[in-house]
Design a protein around this nucleic acid. Structure first.
Lengths: 364, 364
DNA sequence: GGCGCGCCTGAAACCGTTTTCACAGCCGTT
DNA sequence: AACGGCTGTGAAAACGGTTTCAGGCGCGCC
């Protein structure tokens, strides 16, 4: 028999009307000091806590924020959700969390679920931010939302992201600067991640700028058993003239690729350099430490929630906002083993980071 | 102007009463085929979706589940939340997610928040499952909850866990069987994690059984900068006669400890063996792969949600349920470098796992 | 042909809160 | 002394559903 004590119980106890109790609770209108004291005492004694449901029904707006992410298993999303949670709590809101498991078909239904809960707003990472009926519907209904990690081309969509293509461009350039000529882009779930696709464009641009031939991207499912990776990677790294560097679309994938390469008997970074994207905390604890693009994952979550409230109170129009990233050097990226037989065989040194931490490495 | 279409709009369009619309939606009573068709058509045309808030108000129970965890940043909690989310979705419920950041003082307030939302039940990991006023309050109010990873001594508390002490006992025994004599237990946030304390008991038991002297536990904050770890670890592993093995209270900590040991110039596992606890996905991708206790993290989350519903429909009484664990061998646990100068210096081999995967290794 | 029983249906109450509206009392001003 | 405004309060109307209750209608059975 939970919730036996409602605002009516309190009013009775305090000897006033429920309207007055409501006023005391919300400070929505002045009340006499005497009545206020009685009400506060009654609330205290009864342990009363107003029902958010009752409140929401009147307001037609719950103090909750809907969150839609592909998966909590990827630490990059877990970290950004942690940021959202902290910021939401600061603003007396709670997160309603849902995951799509990278299934685009699930997006409309989870958004429906959240909208049915009358959330104040939504934070989402979708598979495709441009061609997306679900987002169109939110636009049409005027429901506040902010994308995170997506970079919609349509600038009237609110989003918090990083320069995915630019960062990958810089990262690929760093690999090229380290002497790598055959660099392969490895993606997880290419089809269901516009991030992976956008990052690929950055890779292509860097290869093209350096006059190098781009490789066909290698697509791996990083949720599947790493054993599956082995076969795919063996196909690419087995033949002679194999790539000397793997640029992975995210850190989780990169760590998995490193394990798979080792299982194939290839040494990282002596045989193959590896880099990731995201800057998850564990990338630094890996051995060798993972070279990656450090994105402010937690801050992005916080910022997304801030943005929701800006949209709600009308203090800002929806915009695409790119937070700064940083190239993070790591032991997994070393100078290329000299592919040309004429050049001297310089030993790569795993211990020394091989590219500067500035976003734009020197152009030579 | 969101939510312009309510059950009343639908009723009008279908030419019937709102009661009938409700009946069609919920199948709570028979309706004529003709009316039902009209109602369904109206719902379709209007894109109507019943408000969960309106529904909950009558029911006094929302179709949401409150989740309280220390932090999403630890993959073990992220994975269990992923399990909860999947199971909750299966049952048409949504998660309300909150984190305490390992702050016991925050527990009562976040639980208050969730209760105010009229959640159907709660899944929580608390700092102390035995002496906990917040849980007492939930008991008193008859609100359904299930603990996860906690192992309350009070058996009338519902919980899904593993045998924390038993698993650590087995893990410590495996280390001892590998020849380690000085094994140190390294904990993160000892004060705010009854898991860390319970696991320590398992370590103590194993050391005692083997007639070895237990070391004082080393407490590290794995959220702090790993640089801080360095100093603490240097104090323990610097002096001669240092421990040859570190048993860490969780995987995240273990990976951080590995990085810190390397920074001190110590090799894992040649100089120091390391083991963790939890079995997070990335433990397997680490190099060397992390020896750990593999717990069914995701499954535990699913099971906790199942249990909530068992409690709600009265089909089961609250109990402490321990799911099976498995020792997972890993390259970080190798035979001890022979401490006794008289014995021959046998080279430890990082590649070969050094303990069997069975929960109870041979007692010699 | 009348009676009774199901089957569908609608009116209305209810859930817990916020908010509007009206009003009583008081004070200061003219 | 009358009047206007201001302050504090309560009654009541929402908000969007579910559910109870009563009743209308059609049908079968005596």
């Amino acid at each position: 028999m939970p919730r036996v004590v409602t605002i009516r119980t309190v009013a009775e106890r305090a000897g006033c009307s429920i309207a007055t109790v409501s006023r005391v609770i919300n400070g929505s209108a002045r009340t006499s000091a005497e009545v206020e004291a009685r009400v506060r005492a009654a609330i205290e004694e009864l342990g009363f806590r107003p029902s958010e449901i009752g409140r929401s029904l009147k307001t037609l707006r719950a103090r909750t924020l809907g969150v839609v992410i592909p998966s909590l298993t990827n630490p990059v999303f877990a970290a950004s959700v942690a940021g959202m949670e902290a910021e939401a709590r600061r603003r007396h809101h709670t997160l309603l969390l849902t995951a799509t498991d990278y299934d685009a078909a699930r997006e409309p239904e989870v958004v429906e679920t959240l909208v049915a809960q009358s959330v104040a707003g939504l934070v989402l990472t979708v598979t495709d931010a441009d061609d997306n009926p679900t987002l169109d519907r939110l636009d049409a209904e005027g429901i506040a939302y902010v994308l995170i990690y997506n970079e919609p081309r349509r600038t009237e969509r609110a989003a918090v992201s990083v320069d995915n293509a630019g960062a990958t461009f810089a990262l690929a350039k760093a690999m090229i600067a380290a002497g790598h000529r055959r660099v392969i882009y490895v993606a997880g779930r290419f089809a269901t991640s516009d991030r992976a696709r956008t990052r690929y464009l950055g890779y292509l641009a860097a290869m093209s700028e350096a006059g190098l031939a781009a490789e066909a991207p290698l697509e791996l499912d990083y949720l599947a058993d790493p054993a599956g990776h082995g076969a795919a990677l063996a196909g690419v790294f087995g033949p002679p003239g194999r790539p000397t560097a793997a640029l992975c679309s995210n850190d989780l994938l990169a760590l998995s690729v490193m394990a798979a390469l080792r299982a194939l008997g290839l040494k990282v970074p002596q045989d193959v350099s590896v880099a990731g994207f995201d800057g998850i905390a564990l990338a630094g604890a890996a051995y060798p430490s993972l070279a990656t693009v450090d994105t402010p994952t937690r801050r992005m979550g916080e910022r997304a929630v801030e943005k929701i409230f800006e949209l709600l109170d009308g203090s800002a129009a929806p915009t695409l906002e790119r937070l700064p990233f940083e190239l993070r050097p790591g032991g997994t990226l070393a100078p290329a083993p000299d592919a040309s037989p004429v050049a001297s065989a310089r030993r790569p040194d795993a211990a020394s980071p091989s590219f500067p931490a500035s976003p734009e490495p020197p152009s030579e």
